[in-house]
Every structure is written in C-alpha cells, then in structure tokens.
C-alpha cells in the first residue's frame, strides 16, 4: 500500500486532478468521521473535567458501565465457543448443507437490530409465546439482564465465526492429520496445533465481537425496559441522558464508548498490518 509513488505519467492523473481528488476525499472523511469524533470529546468536556468525572461516577452511569461489561463478559465467550465449533465443523469436514449453514451464520448482518430484539420479545415477552410459562416459573428474560444478553448474542455471534471460517478453510487439515498420526487425541490436536494457527484471526474476531457487544443499541433497546440503574447498558444510558437534555453528561458516557471505538480501531489496524496474511483475505469485510 505504501509503495513507491507511480512515476509513470501514462497511468497517472495530472497533479491538479490528484490534488483535487485527494482534497475532496479527505474533506469527505473529515466531515463525516473526524468532526463527529472530535465533537464527542469536546461536548463531553463542555463543562469542565470535574463535571465529566462526576457524570461518570453517578450511580446510574456506573450501573450502566457494569451492565455493559457484564453483558460483554458473557456474550463474547459464548460466541467464541460457537465460532470455534462452527468453523471446525465447516473447515475440517465435508457435508451437505454447508452453504446453508454459512448463510444462517451471516443472517444477523442482514436483519435490523430492532428486529433482532423484537424476535425475543415475541418469544419471551409477557405476551410472547413463552410468556405465560416464564411468568409461572417466575423467570424474567425480557426487561431483564438475560434478555439483554440474548439480544447481544444474536447480534454479535457471526463476528468470530466469520473470521475463523475462511482462515481455517485456508489452513486445511494436513497439520491436524499429522498430529493425529503422531498419536495426539482430538483435544490435544485442537489445543496444540489448531489454536496456535488461528490465534490472530481469533483475536481479531473477538475484538470486533466485543466492540459490537458493548456498543449495541437497537436490539438491546427493544428488550431492555430502560429501567435506570438496572437494565440500562451504556448506549441506553447515553440515550436517556440525551432525552433528558442532559447533554454534557450524555456525551461524557458516550466518550467512553468512543474511546472503546478508538481502542478497537488501533488494535484492529495493528493486527491487520502485522498479521495480515494470518487473518486471511476475509478481513476485507
């Protein structure tokens, strides 16, 4: 990408054109990406640093942060296990219906987050299909933490799988066969041979999965019930504060999420630059 500049005039535009296009492109990016990003932080510190800290230390805000972390801590490992299982099944064996399986795994990407939350309300909500059953046994899923975890899992489970499937398909089965021929069991083969080979792709997928899990809004909004201090994740808390015209506090919480986004971007770029070929071409979204 950062190769020697093309000095071949036959296939390069006039300098003016180049400058013009670059300028337009950079302006476009500045307008749509940079200014909003910067604005988040400027708005967050609008009333000074102390106000910023107070806003974050507020009990409801802390509860929201805790809930966000809790949901991520549950959803991400669940999706890691799924991603490993699904990519192992798809990459190491031949069976009919593989492409249907892969399409199913991609499904959450084509469904609106609101619909993702809706389906769980229809199943587990008070008037849902399993509503009466849950009420009988005093189980709350919708408007409670389990519902939030479920909706988050739905929206984020493809990330790890989508990274690992092409990667493991590319790597094939010969190293695993070698390990087996040397006497290793299935688990030993997985731990000692497969896992080290996919570690960077796995990390990349986990990174994306986590970013989405912590930042999910639409799906969680539908199933959450918005009970302050109890069923609000950080994105939902940002919404509540904003709707109460508590703009600065809202941006304060939002700035934490923006920091998470920046952190994700940095790590993502580092992984892509250093381990590009081990993450495979699929990383190009």
């Amino acid at each position: 990408m950062d190769g020697a500049p093309r000095s071949n005039d036959a296939v390069t535009e006039a300098p003016l054109v180049r400058f013009g296009l670059s300028a337009i492109g950079l302006f476009y990016l500045a307008l749509f990406l940079v200014i909003p990003l910067v604005a988040v932080f400027i708005e967050a510190f609008n009333k000074g640093f102390d106000y910023y800290l107070e806003a974050l230390a507020e009990p409801d805000a802390l509860a929201a942060i805790r809930l966000t972390l809790l949901v991520a801590v549950i959803a991400v490992p669940l999706n890691i296990v799924f991603g490993l299982a699904a990519s192992w099944a798809i990459a190491k064996y031949e069976f009919t219906g593989k492409s249907v399986l892969i399409t199913l795994i991609d499904l959450p990407f084509s469904v609106s987050p609101v619909i993702s939350g809706l389906v769980y309300v229809l199943l587990f909500g008070a008037q849902g299909y399993l509503g009466p059953f849950l009420a009988e046994h005093d189980l709350k899923i919708i408007f409670a933490v389990p519902g939030i975890v479920l909706a988050t899992v739905f929206v984020t489970f493809p990330f790890v799988a989508r990274e690992l499937i092409p990667l493991m398909q590319e790597q094939g089965t010969s190293e695993e066969e070698a390990a087996l021929s040397l006497g290793a069991s299935g688990w030993q083969t997985f731990w000692r041979v497969t896992l080290p080979n996919i570690r960077w792709g796995l990390l990349y997928g986990v990174l994306l999965c986590n970013a989405r899990a912590m930042g999910e809004f639409g799906a969680v909004s539908v199933v959450s019930g918005h009970v302050r201090g109890l069923t609000n994740t950080m994105p939902l808390h940002v919404e509540i504060l904003y709707n109460e015209y508590n703009f600065t506090a809202s941006f304060a919480v939002a700035s934490l999420l923006a920091l998470l986004a920046l952190f994700t971007l940095v790590l993502k770029s580092i992984l892509e630059w250093r381990y590009g070929d081990e993450i495979s071409a699929a990383k190009r979204h």
Binding site: A178, S181, S185, R192, P196
Partner: peptide
C-alpha cells in the same frame, strides 16, 4: 490413525508452523 502407530510423512510436510 492414532492407534495404528504408523509414521506418516506428508507431501507438503505439514510441520507445525
């Protein structure tokens, strides 16, 4: 294959990278 105790050398070596 685990229990056959054979030594298999693969075409592209299949070394653990």
């Amino acid at each position: 294959v685990r229990d056959r105790h054979v030594g298999f050398v693969f075409q592209h070596y299949a070394l653990f990278k």
